[in-house]
Structure formats: structure tokens, C-alpha cells
Amino acid sequence: MKFGIVVSEGPYTHQASDTAYHFVKAALAAGHEVPRVFFYHDGVNVGTRLSIPPQDERNIQKNWTALGQEHGIDLVICIAAAQRRGLLDENEASRQGKDANNIAEGFRISGLGQLIEMGIQTDRLMTFGD
């Protein structure tokens, strides 16, 4: 079965991105497919490479990057939500005249259409938020 995943809260403040991560791992372990995870609302903040959690804590961004790369998951950050919250890739930073970008490896920025498309193309859409 194909699962589409929505993460709609930011890391550390809310448990949503952790629960989503464990769900995706369990789904893959059970032989299901997770073609895409869509990060919306404050969930876009999962995709910054600039977070530095304490050494003895999980690194939410790195966990997602690793899982995404290992299983070929499309980690999509919503562009509209990302622009509000200061999450940029190289293209967006240059297009908007900003002096830096902060997107982490394995994530990409794209439009809300990717969320709808995920709903159409997967068998189950799971939302993790608050």
C-alpha cells in the first residue's frame, strides 16, 4: 500500500514529526511504500540544516534526511509556508535576494499542488500535526 504523509508541526515543540517518523519507518518495514512526505505549517522547520539539538537528543532533521535517502522518499517542503517562516533553498534565496539558504540535504521546496497530488496518488493520507 502507498502512504502519503503530512507533517504539519515543527520539530521539538511538537511530537508530530517524531510520530510521523516512527510511522513511516514502521510502514516501510512492513513492506509498504512511502513515496512522499509533505511538510506544511510549522512542519517546514523540520527541513532546516541549521538546527543544533543537544548531543544526547535525537536530530529530527538528520533522521528524516537519512530515512529519505535510504528509501527514496520525496521530502517536500511547502513553498508558501516556507517563505513565511524563512526556510529557503539556493534558488529561492537568490530569487528573493536573500544572503543565505538553510534547506537540509534530501529536502526540496515545492508547491501545495504536491500535497494534493500525494492525496490523489496514494492509498492512505496520514496527517501528523497538533
Binding site: M1, F3, S8, H22, F23, K25, A26, A27, A29, A30, H32, R124, L125, M126, T127, F128, G129, D130
Partner: peptide, 20 residues
């Protein structure tokens, strides 16, 4: 149930609705 059970539940039902 554990996360594997969560996944199984999601497959057994036709849709999932998160009450946020």
C-alpha cells in the same frame, strides 16, 4: 499497539482522519 500496529490499522480502514 506499537507503530507496526498503527500502520496495520491504517491499512485495515479506508481512510485516516487526524483530530488535531
Amino acid at each position: 499497539i506499537d507503530y507496526a500496529g498503527f500502520v496495520a490499522l491504517a491499512t485495515e480502514h479506508d481512510r485516516a482522519q487526524a483530530w488535531l
